[in-house]
Design a binder for these strands. Structure first.
Length: 395
RNA sequence: GCCGGGAUACCCAAGCGGCCAAAGGGAGCAGACUGUAAAUCUGCCGGCGAAGCCUUCGGAGGUUCAAAUCCUUCUCCCGGCACCA
């Protein structure tokens, strides 16, 4: 194993425990089994999830086996990590609805091989009470309560269910089931990953290395990226969306995003940041580069170029977008615009449409519309936009 | 189990018989300025082919010309006490 292999494996990592062990494993020349468990709690892979997925991919690139565990069973238990209250438990149906689309997206980030995809219901569903009791002997209540999330909740008198105590045990058992050498996770997963080590030891296995990645901050620049907060970019989003959303992130996220979202090596990131700091590189230019890198990763360079051109047309030169999806202009003349905007799904309600028309935000081929009634002539084969981001081509 | 406090729009939070589609803040959307950054400023922020009407203030029922506001009841949350240990 050469130096650069270790660099790739550890690039961007937050914590790697125990110290030195990962290097040993990498140098051993053995093909490692690298585990990443993701609970299908939401239907989309965001750039946040992609951070750990890309880390897994790094190991694939080094020839190691990616063992991706779909936590279909654990999603029904509810991970307490980082939570100030009990996490919602998903039903088997919800899990199933999420899992299929997720698999496809996982494959989009990872290499086709070496890849092993496992569902943890495979071994967790059939655990009997004897084995569960066995599992529970590996931790004490005091150890559980050391975790900051539990500690806070306990001291504030908030409820902690026994189910939540079980979660890290089950996740640890996953490591036993797949014989993991390394387990990856977000930095909020460190405790769970360390529990995996305890449990592996209990089952006579060599304990895994725990490698955590920082949690990616969302497009709002404040909270970690999550689907429930709406501050995310999905890996399946169209190139122009990805590009535009990236351009809208606050400047202070540049370094973090270059490193984690665009997956660039530290040296390159430092050079760019230095350029921005010394004024030799404009922040907006750096962000363009970032956006192009991210889009290239998931859509390819061709689409990245096209997305940038589209971005310029739309926002820099304020021209009408070329990729506006078509929408069939309904019969009738004149056209009742609020109704049209609603049925074209550019707005949620006709009331909202009226307000936006009043505010001058609704345009036909770039020209503001004054009233609610518009002649058919004026709309046919034109691009209708609401603000800068929403548009349709009427035909 | 008992006593007390509470539940208001996406979130926080005022209102406590008519002037309430409901103050204020945050988030969000649109506009100005920019670099779709930050900061700042302006407007909007339940629905409806809309001077009017309809639906909303935890659920159900009631009082009243009139209820987010008063009464009854139910559900859930918070504090204290008791029970248990």
């Amino acid at each position: 194993m050469n130096e650069s292999g270790i660099n790739l494996a550890t690039r961007g990592a937050d914590t790697i425990l125990p110290p030195g062990r990962l290097e040993e494993l990498l140098e051993s020349g053995r093909r490692l089994r690298v585990k990443l468990g993701l609970d299908p709690t939401a239907p989309m892979v965001t750039l946040g999830w992609a951070v750990v997925l890309r880390k897994l991919r790094h190991f694939q690139e080094l020839g190691h086996t990616a063992v991706l565990i779909v936590g279909d069973f654990t999603a029904r238990v509810g991970d307490p990590s980082g939570k100030s209250e009990t996490r919602k438990r998903l039903t088997a149906e919800e899990v199933k609805a999420h899992a299929e689309p997720l698999l496809e997206q996982f494959r989009q980030v990872l290499l086709p091989e070496p890849l092993e995809i496992r569902w943890n219901s495979e071994w967790l569903e059939s655990l009997d009470m004897t084995e569960i009791l066995e599992l529970t002997t590996t931790v004490t209540v005091a150890q559980m309560l050391e975790r900051s999330d539990f500690a806070n909740r306990y001291s504030e008198g908030n409820p902690i269910s026994i189910t939540e105590f079980l979660y890290p045990l089950l996740q640890g058992y996953d490591s036993v089931a797949v014989r993991a050498d390394v387990e990856l996770g977000g930095s909020d997963q460190l405790w769970n990953l360390m529990m995996g080590r305890n449990i592996q030891t209990r089952y006579g296995q060599e304990p895994q290395v725990a490698l955590t990645m920082p949690l990616l901050t969302g497009t709002d620049g404040r909270n970690k990226m999550s689907q429930s907060l709406g501050n995310y970019i999905g890996v399946t989003e169209p190139a122009s969306e990805m590009f535009g959303k990236t351009m809208s992130i606050p400047d202070h996220l540049l370094g973090e995003w270059f490193r984690l979202a665009a997956d660039r090596p530290a040296g390159e990131v430092d050079a760019i940041l230095e350029g921005v700091e010394t004024g030799s590189r404009h922040p907006a230019q750096a962000k363009r580069l970032l956006a192009r890198r991210i889009v290239s990763l998931y859509r390819g360079e061709g689409e990245a170029d096209a997305a940038e051109e589209d971005f310029d047309r739309r926002f820099k030169y304020r021209r009408v977008p070329e990729d506006a999806p078509p929408f069939a202009l309904p019969a009738g003349d004149p056209v009742y615009l609020p109704g049209l905007l609603r049925s074209a799904k550019l707005v949620a309600s006709a009331s909202e449409a009226r307000r936006l028309i009043d505010a001058g935000a609704v345009r036909v081929d770039g020209a503001s519309v004054g009233g609610y009634e518009v002649e058919r002539q004026v709309l046919l084969d034109r691009v209708l936009t609401v603000g800068k981001r929403r548009s349709v081509f009427l035909n």
